[in-house]
Design a protein around this nucleic acid. Structure first.
Ligand SMILES: [Mn+2]
Ligand SMILES: [Mn+2]
Ligand SMILES: [Zn+2]
Ligand SMILES: [Zn+2]
Lengths: 134, 134
DNA sequence: CTCTGTAATTAGACTAAGTCTAAACTTGTA
DNA sequence: TACAAGTTTAGACTTAGTCTAATTACAGAG
């Protein structure tokens, strides 16, 4: 097993690996918490030597989403969350704590919709709601 | 077939049918467009004799959601949509136009997830993305 | 090695969605 | 008619996100 390297990943996806982009990507690769932009800003700014502005966090998240390095996840009104897991998967929201967990596509039954021919489905997202122990 | 009456519906759900609540409910019952709070405000304020403030729109939407008269629908970052269809259903987002369509629960295969026993699923929502003709 | 153009970062102004507050209005009941 | 409780209101406020204009970083050319 080899570590995922943020810088290599950015290069592979055609994104110039600036220090700010690298630390944001490293942070997202290191967590499964689906953090918001504000959480990313707090975490990366306080923990790392590089300077980081709010505008750069938003610019970087947009750049990373467009390059396919991360994905935006919307589970609740008001703010987006970000996820370095770009494999085909869905989400589980613990309605007590707000925590968001990954649900691999393989562990759910594929969703088939019988819609009239006007609809052309490109994809779908499933969000589960419930509670999780621990 | 008998018309759905907003005032009766509110009474049945235990919500005092004030003029503002009635017109907002009538508007939501009359459309399938899944409008945002701002769209509701514009539409109801311009088309109806009753006065209506922004705070009342938000207050009323919260009241109606809590009473089960309507549901909040989150399909995109940034704003919520509201839906007088409270039957068990899912949504289809036309990624070209942004329009949101209802998908009855019966026309999709039920989603079964095989998760470890820590997860207790209370429900799920499916959002389809694609395009729709017309 | 320096020059120079382009891309990236920045602070902070700005916007848009939503919340809150305190005062005024409405309504059901006594 | 008087009151209390509930509702509506304008507008201040908050928060997430965008935009702008200035600065900084840096790769390639000379
Ligand atoms: Mn913060
Ligand atoms: Mn408007
Ligand atoms: Zn995820
Ligand atoms: Zn709907």
């Amino acid at each position: 097993m080899h570590e995922i390297n943020a810088e290599e990943l950015l290069l592979k996806k055609g994104v110039k690996p600036t220090p700010q982009r690298v630390v944001i990507t490293e942070y997202l690769l290191s967590t499964h918490s689906h953090p918001t932009a504000d959480e990313i800003l707090d975490e990366v700014k306080n923990a790392l030597p590089v300077s980081l502005s709010r505008a750069t966090v938003y610019n970087t998240l947009k750049t990373l989403v467009e390059a396919g390095v991360i994905q935006e996840v919307v589970t609740e009104p008001g703010r987006s969350r970000y996820d370095a897991n770009v494999s085909d998967h869905h989400h589980f929201v613990d309605t007590k704590t707000g925590a968001v967990f990954d649900i691999p596509a393989e562990v759910i039954t594929p969703v088939k919709a019988t819609l009239d021919e006007r609809y052309k489905i490109d994809g779908y997202k499933v969000v589960f709601f419930g509670t999780r122990q621990d």
